[in-house]
């Protein structure tokens, strides 16, 4: 398993994925610096900034870009018979699938950390003087990451299934756009997997728990959809003809 991961990382390093990862802090900076609302709220000035940044980031950017990452990690396998070569090596398909998934989740984590830096930079550029709400920021950074677990699993599945970038991206768009409405609904928002990054990054949610959403919701919605998509992709890959 370790060897497969090393090999995956080696192949990925040479692709242009780093540029895509760095769109995350750039989007963070863009959102933080342009979408300035007049601060009418009492209290910590970081909150408003965080709030406006996280809405667009978690609603649209994060779900969509993780799909792009998944497609990139499969692109060079589709291109010139990579699957054929890889799977004729002494490796199991299961391990290859898990290795790709693990690597993707590391990339998303790294992206979230860069976004963290962007949040900090925004405050610094704007000259915020209030104390930095470390715990809340961490909560939303890690929460957003955890919420992408099922989304990445589905996108990896779709990216293995389809050769092109556009097809898995279309699936992603179809599920992501309704999120904008779903988060307005108290009834549907909590059950919609694509709304979970927003729920997890939405500062001002339930502050008592470890994350901004209740444990039951995390386990059932995020956990449940993760199992569904991960097992679905895993099983599909076992049977994929190459």
């Amino acid at each position: 398993m370790r060897y497969i991961l090393q090999s995956e990382w080696y192949k990925l390093r040479k692709s242009k994925i780093i540029f895509i990862i760095f769109t995350s802090p750039l989007v963070g900076l863009f959102l933080g610096l342009t979408t300035q609302l007049v601060n009418e709220m009492e209290g910590n000035e970081w909150y408003l900034s965080l709030f406006t940044m996280n809405v667009t980031y978690a609603l649209l950017f994060l779900p969509l870009i993780t799909g792009v990452l998944a497609s990139i990690i499969c692109r060079y396998e589709h291109q010139e018979g990579g699957w054929k070569q890889l799977l004729a090596l002494p490796v199991t398909r299961g391990k290859v699938f898990v290795a790709k998934y693990v690597l993707l989740m590391f990339l998303v984590l790294f992206m979230q950390l860069l976004y963290f830096v962007a949040i900090y930079l925004v405050g610094w550029i704007n000259g915020f003087t209030d104390p930095f709400p470390m715990d809340i920021v961490w909560k939303s950074i890690l929460g957003g990451w955890v919420a992408t677990f099922p989304l990445v699993a589905l996108q990896l599945w779709m990216s293995i299934l389809f050769k092109s970038f556009a097809a898995p991206f279309t699936v992603n768009v179809i599920f992501t756009l309704p999120t904008i409405l779903a988060v307005n609904s108290e009834k549907f928002g909590p059950y919609y997997p694509w709304a979970q990054p927003f729920a997890m990054m939405n500062v001002g949610g339930n502050v008592g728990d470890v994350f901004f959403i209740p444990w039951e919701q995390l386990l059932t919605v995020v956990g449940g959809s993760f199992l569904l998509f991960f097992i679905g992709g895993y099983m599909y890959f076992q049977r994929k003809p190459v």
Binding site: K16, T56, L64
Partner: peptide, 21 residues
């Protein structure tokens, strides 16, 4: 690499969602 135009599309939609600003 079709990742490039797709990423541009993602950035575009982020911009469009922030159109007001």
């Amino acid at each position: 690499n079709q990742g490039i135009p797709i990423t541009t599309g993602v950035l575009g939609v982020v911009f469009a969602y922030s159109a007001y600003y």
